[in-house]
Design a protein around this nucleic acid. Structure first.
Length: 420
DNA sequence: ACTCCACCGGAATACTTGGCGT
DNA sequence: ACGCCAAGTATTCCGGTGGAGT
């Protein structure tokens, strides 16, 4: 009973409304996105006169406000059309969740069902979540579109995921659906954060889909400041943020590709840290700890999901570091790995494979590597940890096969002799 | 049953500079 | 002093395999 009491009382010292800082929160004003919003709006405007708007392809890194902007324009469009004769509707589909042709078509059909359906609509068969041939779903969707008329804007969020998982058939069908329709029109907006997905597309689909292209550039530090400022006013109790907090969050996130989500995470976690240590205000020191926390958290997450073999390779490096080596070569790591793998009675991979795993660890940012040529003594790759490796060791040893007991019997004298 | 993908390793080729021959 | 060689992996290319998904 009394356990949570202290959390209930003076809890609102720092946060007024924490939800405002979450990714799912949708602000009413999107700072520094007016040019993009205006462009989208001007492209979609013909739909209010019952004309077909151009299809749009939108690019931009994560956290640049693509989805939020499109949703904003979409809701404004629906608002405008309700005062107008023409009927415009917007369907928003996240292709990371809905990732097959069947489910995309079914979802669109489901979303355009109107609550005020006439009796004849009631007779219309409901598309089941599974069971129909895809062309039948396609036909049914077409019928529904014809029945409701007007213009339907279909937003395909994370469209690259859809193309990657189930090819470009869906897009092909959707782009040519207009030629089968008489009393209604369809417009497609594709949102992607990966430019290279165009390569997987049929040229015809691509040209039809990218009649208009809009790029969302990353935010710079001052822009992120504005965004944070706007949210902070709603999220935090007045005067609980030190002056430098927001600029620091913005600067750190701007270094990291200008991701607004990252900036909001930083701000939120800074606040949570301050709250936890019952500070009066959020200080810059909290932001720095938040940054470190985010980094180690993602590192821990990353390492713990590594395949066993990679962990063993990483452990080999840790052993070398404990022997006082700050920098090790691939040859050394391979030798330690082989000994280690032998003791653990797991498959011993060849050096060929180890070098691949090392490169992978480098890509993930767990270690740093550098290729060096040592003249007569060959060419090798040097690697080292940059953060404190103790965290990494803790995570690695959570793997049941890599605990101290399992390795206690290992012949460490061999190690010491070889790598003095 | 069939396809696709992640994982694996062999062989060939690329790379770079200290050392050695001249 | 100069230039080529060789060491020792990196890197690339490619083909095989087993398991997951459909």
């Amino acid at each position: 009973m009394g356990l949570f009491k202290k959390y209930l009382t003076d809890r609102n010292k720092i946060f007024k409304n924490r939800e405002v800082l979450r990714h799912s929160y949708r602000p009413h004003i999107l700072p520094h996105r007016m040019p993009q919003i205006d462009e989208i709006a001007s492209i979609l405007a013909p739909s209010l006169r019952n004309e077909t708007p151009s299809n749009i392809l939108i690019y931009g890194k994560t956290g640049t406000g693509k989805t939020a902007s499109v949703r904003y324009v979409g809701s404004e469009l629906e608002k405008a059309s309700s005062q107008n004769v023409a009927t415009c509707a917007v369907v928003h589909i996240n292709c990371e969740v809905i990732d097959t042709q069947y489910r995309v078509l079914a979802q669109i059909a489901k979303d355009i069902e109107r609550p005020d359906e006439t009796p004849s609509d009631k007779l219309r068969p409901h598309i089941p979540m599974t069971g129909w041939p895809t062309d039948q779903v396609y036909m049914e969707l077409k019928n529904q579109l014809e029945a409701r008329g007007g213009v339907l804007v279909i937003v395909l969020d994370e469209i690259d995921k859809l193309v990657k998982k189930s090819g470009d058939d869906t897009l092909y069908n959707l782009t040519r659906i207009n030629s089968d329709l008489h009393s209604s029109r369809v417009c497609i907006i594709g949102i992607s954060n990966d430019l290279s997905f165009k390569d997987f597309l049929d040229p015809r689909v691509l040209s039809s889909l990218s009649e208009e292209e809009i790029v969302f550039p990353p935010y710079n530090a001052p822009q992120l400041c504005d965004i944070l400022q706007q949210r902070a006013e709603k999220a935090f109790v007045l005067e609980t943020l030190d002056e430098g907090v927001i600029p620091l969050c913005a600067a750190l996130a701007a270094q990291e590709h200008g991701d607004a989500r990252r900036a909001l995470d930083l701000l939120r976690i800074s606040g949570e840290l301050a709250e936890r240590e019952e500070a009066e205000k959020v200080a810059e020191s909290h932001v720095k700890s938040a940054q470190a926390k985010i980094e180690t958290d993602s590192m821990i997450e990353c390492i713990s999901t590594l395949p066993t073999q990679s962990k063993v390779v990483l452990y080999s490096m840790l052993l070398l570091e404990q022997l006082g080596h700050l920098i090790f070569t691939s040859g050394e790591v391979c030798r330690v790995y082989q000994e280690l793998a032998c003791h653990l009675e797991i498959d011993v991979l060849t050096n060929r494979r180890i070098t691949d795993l090392i490169s992978e660890l480098n890509m993930l940012g767990v270690i740093n590597t550098r290729v060096v040529s040592r003249g007569r003594y060959g060419r090798t790759k040097e690697m080292w940890f940059d953060a404190n490796s103790t965290k990494i060791q803790e995570v690695i040893q959570k793997d049941p096969r890599l605990t101290e007991q399992g390795l206690g019997q290992m012949d460490r004298t061999w190690l010491k002799q070889t790598f003095r």
